[in-house]
Write a protein that binds this DNA or RNA. Structure first.
Lengths: 359, 359
DNA sequence: ATCGTGTAGCTAAACGTTAAGGTGAGAGAA
DNA sequence: TTCTCTCACCTTAACGTTTAGCTACACGAT
């Protein structure tokens, strides 16, 4: 590997001159400049970011820790974060914790070791897993995405999960459903508990009593959701509609429906949170609540870079993004239950929501 | 940030002793060891990988360049590569080229600058885009995944695409279909051309004449596939089955089918390459050809680490992985065409293929 | 001629590690 | 006692950059 020294000797100049011409940090006469460029090309020299980082104390690296990159939400988030970071001159070091908190801790340590300048974290632990001192020991700005950690003084950007759930529920309710099941996630995750809160709230606003037997923990996972929804749907008094709290669980639910010989939306209406490419190709096309992933990603990067720029430690800012319902075909009018109010409510929902499809 | 010096002075030892106890590279008396550990804890010291890399000339970083991390194939590949690399003590620097060759070039340069030790590359350019000298200038081992670049002397691991396509086609043919359309990818990509070759081969073996009007370029993209398949399926003499060459295009195809008021498999049978989580939750459950992604990822890492270990430049090795057909419900017996041979052929296919589902 | 001034390019120190080699104290043998 | 050997620990020189500060040359003013 040629070094800057090699370039310097070949061009007959000092290393300082090479550095100056390469970085444009000082005036260099056209003649020398040319010689340097030539030497660089001839030797195939490429600067060593490691050495530069050591000297400058900046790595131009940001860390991204997600729980499961296989989840389209995180996949798309990763994509926009990587792309945006790159336009700002940062590269990203990606870690997938496989939803294991222990791994997350190791990765946090790793990020520190690699002198990542800042961190975007989708935390997988429960809130009390995190030790303030330990997190502070990272000595770098952190922005939380998707999952809140209220005890930690970090910036955050996440969906208005309560609203997302009520949007979904209101849509179902508008079709006259009264017995509505929920397939939720692990309650220690803010996303999960907030979505359940939205479920309760929507029910309550319609004066429908909350029935704990109708809400099951699908653990945000396909297999658990499969088991749990199969059980829920094979009861004689099965719910006429299901609110599914994330995309992976939707797969399990749809499989369970097929396995039981049921059909959606004929036998059970479905609305889930998290839109994803395939939702629109299903039969029926799935009605979902979409998260503005590009905005979330941009915001996360912007918050991080802001902290990086002005070192001052201002109070953490919490961004809450708006969900949008994407009405498709997985919900239909309930038949065997009274449905008084429904037509009016349906009419009040703008049809243009569909415009978000096929983007 | 505390440095090793700070730890040394606080523990009353030299930096060498700190380094030795932290890395276990030399014997240190229990007493000093303890003092060092204490000092590290008290100061919250974490080693600086940058400085270490500079000194040792090793970064423990590997680069991964993919065209579109949003594609489940790459997503899953990324996941296993990241996980496997981590177990071998490597972290991964992820870059998404958004299928733009220009970006890929920039990223290659970036990888070199960051002194990544090796590179796993899913190339997006056409074969003649790559300059041997330029690629050699990277001065690091490269292993190609998914897409071949025959002119470059790099290790590679990819699917037997011809076989994958013939598996898909044989399945369709076994159901008696004779007019079979293909939605393919950009022909300059090896994956795409090989899959088309498999399509031709299967047809030929059944003595069916190749009809160019039945094969369309969906560019491996949802939207293009939508357009192209919509057109293909709205002809009066539309094919009774479609072979779809990748997962993203399947979405477009399914949307087109729904848009035209058709049904799968009643009106058109479908088999696609690339299995993915959702395939199994569709109505109908989609029959696909699966790639052994974990094996591909492991092999790629192993090849890379092998090269890293023994510096000797042996001849490139090319690994070809076996696809497996996952028979589900998106294909049915053709009704309006003669179908002599079919029953026998169906019987010859092991039913146990289904065992791969729900893994 | 002398001095001052500006500036292109150079010299060398520093960033935080690691590791080769050196030092010196203690133990055992003569 | 003295020599030798061992070995725990230290000193110090790198690794490839950047950059502060220096040098020396040229030019204009006096």
């Amino acid at each position: 590997m040629p070094t800057i020294r090699d370039v310097a000797t070949r061009a007959g100049v000092s290393t300082a001159t090479v550095s100056a011409t390469l970085n444009g940090t000082a005036f260099v006469s056209p003649e020398l400049k040319e010689r340097v460029i030539a030497a660089v090309r001839e030797l195939g020299y490429a600067p060593d970011a490691i050495a530069r980082s050591l000297k400058q104390g900046r790595t131009h690296l940001i860390g991204l820790i997600v729980g499961d990159i296989t989840n389209p939400y995180f996949t798309e988030l990763t994509q926009v974060i990587e792309a945006t970071a790159q336009t700002q001159g940062y590269s990203v070091l990606l870690c997938d914790t496989n939803q294991e908190f222990q791994k997350e801790r190791e990765y946090l340590q790793l990020m520190r070791t690699y002198r990542v300048e800042g961190l975007i974290l989708a935390a997988t632990g429960r809130p009390d897993d995190y030790d303030l001192a330990e997190m502070h020991g990272l000595r770098m700005p952190v922005v939380l995405v998707d999952r809140a950690l209220p005890l930690l003084p970090f910036d955050s950007v996440m969906l208005d999960n309560v609203l997302a759930a009520t949007q979904a529920m209101n849509h179902i309710l508008a079709f006259g459903h009264r017995r509505i099941g929920m397939i939720g996630g692990p309650r220690h995750l803010s996303v999960a508990s907030e979505r359940e809160e939205g479920y309760r709230l929507a029910l309550q606003q319609q004066g429908i009593e909350y029935d704990g037997r109708l809400v099951r923990d699908g653990n945000f996972r396909e297999e658990d959701a499969f088991t749990v929804s199969q059980e829920l749907l094979s009861r004689s008094d099965r719910p006429s509609a299901l609110f599914v709290a994330n995309n992976h669980m939707l797969i399990g639910v749809m499989r369970a429906i097929a396995d039981l010989g049921l059909q959606c939306p004929r036998d059970v209406s479905i609305v889930s949170i998290d839109d994803f490419r395939w939702a629109n190709a299903f039969t029926p096309r799935m009605t979902t609540v979409n998260q503005p992933i590009p905005e979330i990603g941009h915001a996360a990067i912007r918050l991080l870079l802001d902290r990086l720029a002005r070192k001052a430690t201002t109070d953490p800012v919490h961004l809450v993004m708006m969900p949008t319902l994407r009405v498709r075909d997985s919900c239909k009018q309930v038949v065997f239950e009274p449905a008084e109010r429904t037509t009016a409510t349906i009419a009040s929902m703008p049809a243009s929501r569909n415009a978000f499809d096929h983007e």
